[in-house]
Computed example of a mutant assay.
Amino acid sequence: MERRKTVMAGWVMILLGLLALFHNFIGFFTIVALILIFAGVYKMQRNRLKKGYMLAAIGGVLLVLDNLVLFIGITLISLGVFYYRSRKIQPGGSAVFKQNFMSNYKWDEMPWTLRNASIWHVIGEMNADLSLALPEERETVFYMQGILGDVDFWIPEYYGVEVEAVVVFGQIELGRDMDVGVLNRLVWKSPNYAESEYKVKFIISYVAGDVRFQFI
């Protein structure tokens, strides 16, 4: 109980600090949106995920509606960072580059080709089973970036895996380990990476979303 009170006090102080910093630019609906988002994050950290996501989603919608210009600016910045980073990240000119406002990838039902790829979207969903994948190269770089995303990867043990993931609001799950809340970051490399015949590196970045890696 004491720990809960401490955590709640921390969130309240963060919220009050943000309001103090940006009070000249924040309207009533933005304040309500921020309260809902932080309440949602708090619920998620208490493992009440369904209610937490609902509160955060409502807060996010209000925040976008009340700050449409800001949302457009964040989207353009995200796209600019994507173009810059993708050219540096991808090892060669054979990579696939995709940019969409909304995308939905279902690579968990039939064989698919695993290749170097850079994918950006405002809203996106991906389900990818690497046991069904046909790798083009021994080493693959998979780069995903967006505003809102729901991403699931199922990875066989024979793959060497490296992960660099950032989710500002939401969760990152790796096997049984899960980080939920604000400013989540994961850097991880599988123990068998060096000797694996096939290697894949995931570089994933979202403003809000769920990113999950499950090993099969």
Score class of each variant (00 low, 15 high):
71 F>T: 14
48 R>M: 10
19 L>W: 10
3 R>D: 06
31 I>A: 09
200 V>W: 04
144 M>F: 07
215 F>P: 01
169 F>N: 00
33 A>V: 06
138 R>N: 13
169 F>K: 03
119 I>M: 09
201 K>I: 12
200 V>I: 15
136 E>Y: 07
150 D>K: 05
31 I>S: 00
1 M>G: 07
196 S>F: 05
196 S>N: 11
60 G>K: 06
26 I>M: 12
118 S>T: 07
206 Y>A: 01
213 F>Q: 03
132 L>G: 04
34 L>V: 08
47 N>C: 03
201 K>G: 04
68 L>M: 13
8 M>H: 10
193 Y>M: 12
203 I>E: 06
211 V>I: 15
120 W>Y: 15
38 F>L: 04
157 E>D: 15
114 L>I: 10
72 I>E: 07
34 L>G: 02
98 K>G: 05
113 T>D: 10
108 D>F: 02
124 G>M: 04
97 F>G: 09
58 I>F: 07
70 L>M: 13
179 D>A: 14
75 T>H: 04
189 K>S: 12
174 L>D: 03
49 L>R: 10
171 Q>R: 15
7 V>R: 05
210 D>F: 02
59 G>L: 05
44 M>K: 04
41 V>Q: 02
46 R>S: 13
176 R>C: 01
171 Q>S: 14
125 E>L: 02
73 G>V: 09
10 G>R: 07
19 L>T: 08
128 A>L: 08
73 G>A: 14
156 P>C: 08
19 L>D: 06
57 A>I: 15
158 Y>L: 02
169 F>I: 15
188 W>Y: 14
190 S>W: 10
63 L>T: 05
